[in-house]
Design a protein around this nucleic acid. Structure first.
Lengths: 336, 336
DNA sequence: TGAATTATATGAATCGTTTCGTGAAACATA
DNA sequence: TATGTTTCACGAAACGATTCATATAATTCA
């Protein structure tokens, strides 16, 4: 007799079908069972509208088919894209995803990790900023864009190559005197390598270059000041600018327009990330595109890989260049 | 004696502290326990680095403090924003969020709902498109933008008022002859009310108006054709256009520019949603802003509300207008 | 036909919590 | 001191699934 007002359990199904508990379990899990039994159980399942209780399964099996994703938010397109693609990769493997928006808050990052561990997730993927997160060794962790120490693989774009590519592109597009602009985290993380790559590329191509790097807390206006200082008689001394992110590129674009510079005629701009308007339309600016889908797939693959020893400390995936209207490729503009 | 290589359990803590299982449980849950016991237990917890197993808790309590959010994806800024704000509202209440990207796939929507129910989530928030989803009555469900039937509250912006507001704004900004453009779902959902609201507003203000509504599957080029037909001698007959979403507004903007129309000088455009570039910067276009944060809060509040009877069938939250460069408010443009 | 072998269904034990009836200890009262 | 009350720790039972040792039925072979 099934209890009132409560979801049916395996026991209820067993009673309904007139078989033992273990038999129902086998049917549910697709293990070999005599046909007559199987049919009776399947009928009972349909009749009672039975659904397994993943929590009971998780408790017994110590496996939950759930992973946690820590990202600052889903408002920034790059993070949103990561969340989307990681979700897809997990879906293919029948895994579920707990989304944890950390808002760049170190305390919240730690809270979410503790929560995830209590929830006995099968692993955590994290794009985090707290430099001393405490992660139990028993919980597999894969980091994005940051090296977190031994045993924790880091997945990132090839940021150095990306910086280099930006320099080469600007050079190919006719620039002679370029600038690199960066704002944000002083942490040692993979995206910081964009600077070295760009420098390297500039040297290789014989480009004149300058760098303006704002520390945490410095206001964006410093960039405006910097740019103004490089305007002589209405003319900007740079003919190309590489911004560390598309978001920054967008702000710089607006600033330059305010300073009466035409883009791309007077100065060309390349960003980094590969952000598109509304998710799937044009690129927000000419940009070095991160292979988000590949990053996602690699994160999931490494996270779920059993063999800890085979986990590499750092994986850098290849980036590419995409036109987005802020560089002077007239043949492409016509395509638009 | 604690087992090798496995996370410590309450039993381990009890043994370490020399107390009973129930006592540890009480300490963990903040129930009254004698001070000497409490201290011993707390020390043991620290020493063993014990963490509760939420799965065991969930099994016993039939309560998981987890809800599932079904949205098409996180790439579209509006959905991404929903995900972000719902996550925040849940966090305040110590709830976790399973993110399910459905990609507008009816089958996947149903799969996710079944999965969520097996996972014994405490509720589901869904912005779905499948017209006949099967949802167990025992799982609380709150719908966004779609009425799903009795017992399932629907949360939405006041789309009718939004359409009206768009007409009024265009009128205030000097438009005399306007158009409404819509593409997408033929489902009966709340956003469809934007059309009626706009019509109503146009009539009230004595605006000339035309509508162009594309069915599912019709190509975007139909809009271009429509607009071309309304260009006479290089001049568009409309001086204002209301697009059903910001995303559409963006596409129309590009099309109009291709047709040599200046925005906002020749024709003003208002979209709907309140999308911002890069999540927190300028609006993508002049727009009717959906109160996403309030929608999120309302969804969570209604979902977790115990009293089923107090759940309203439909909640419409107030929208507002925001300038985003595609309307002719010169005083605002100067602010930029 | 009877014994040996194989195949397969059974159900008790288990996972890590929470809950609650039980009983021991501490305190108050006469 | 003896008795009645109150307090609070104890630990068995339960949540719903899986697993595995056991029991039963079916099959094979002499």
């Amino acid at each position: 007799m099934k209890k009132e007002n409560s979801a049916p359990t395996m026991k209820d199904v067993a009673a309904e079908a007139g078989v033992a508990l273990g038999t129902v379990s086998k049917v549910v899990n697709g293990l070999p069972v005599g046909d007559s039994y199987r049919i009776r159980v399947e009928d009972a399942i349909k009749k009672l509208n039975y659904q397994v209780n993943s929590y009971a399964q998780g408790l017994k099996a110590n496996r939950t088919y759930t992973i946690a994703l820590l990202i600052p938010n889903t408002l920034q397109p790059f993070y949103a894209s990561l969340a989307y693609h990681i979700n897809l990769s997990l879906l293919k493997r029948k895994y579920r995803m707990l989304l944890c928006s950390t808002d760049y808050d170190s305390g919240l990052e730690q809270e979410y990790i503790t929560m995830a561990q209590q929830n006995k997730v099968d692993g955590i993927i994290g794009l985090t900023y707290n430099p001393n997160l405490i992660i139990e060794e028993s919980t597999p962790f894969v980091a994005i864009d940051r090296s977190m120490g031994p045993g924790i693989p880091c997945i990132a774009s090839d940021n150095f190559a990306g910086g280099q590519l930006a320099a080469e592109k600007l050079s190919d597009l006719g620039c002679k005197n370029v600038a690199f602009l960066r704002i944000g985290s002083s942490l040692t993380n993979e995206p910081n390598k964009r600077k070295a790559g760009f420098e390297n590329g500039c040297l290789a191509r014989g480009l004149q270059y300058e760098m303006k790097i704002l520390d945490d807390g410095e206001p964006f206006e410093e960039f405006e000041k910097f740019l103004k200082e490089h305007i002589d008689n209405g003319k900007l001394s740079f003919d190309g600018i590489f911004c560390v992110t598309d978001s920054l590129a967008y702000s710089i674009l607006k600033t330059l327009r305010k300073l009466n510079q035409r883009i791309p005629e007077d100065v060309q701009i390349i960003g980094f990330d590969g952000i598109r308007y509304f998710g799937d339309k044009d690129y927000a600016c000419s940009t070095i595109v991160q292979p988000v889908s590949e990053i996602a797939e690699m994160c999931v693959e490494l996270l779920l890989q059993e063999n800890m020893l085979a986990k590499p400390p750092l994986v850098c995936l290849p980036v590419s260049y995409a036109y987005g209207g802020t560089t002077a490729e007239t043949f492409k503009e016509q395509e638009q």
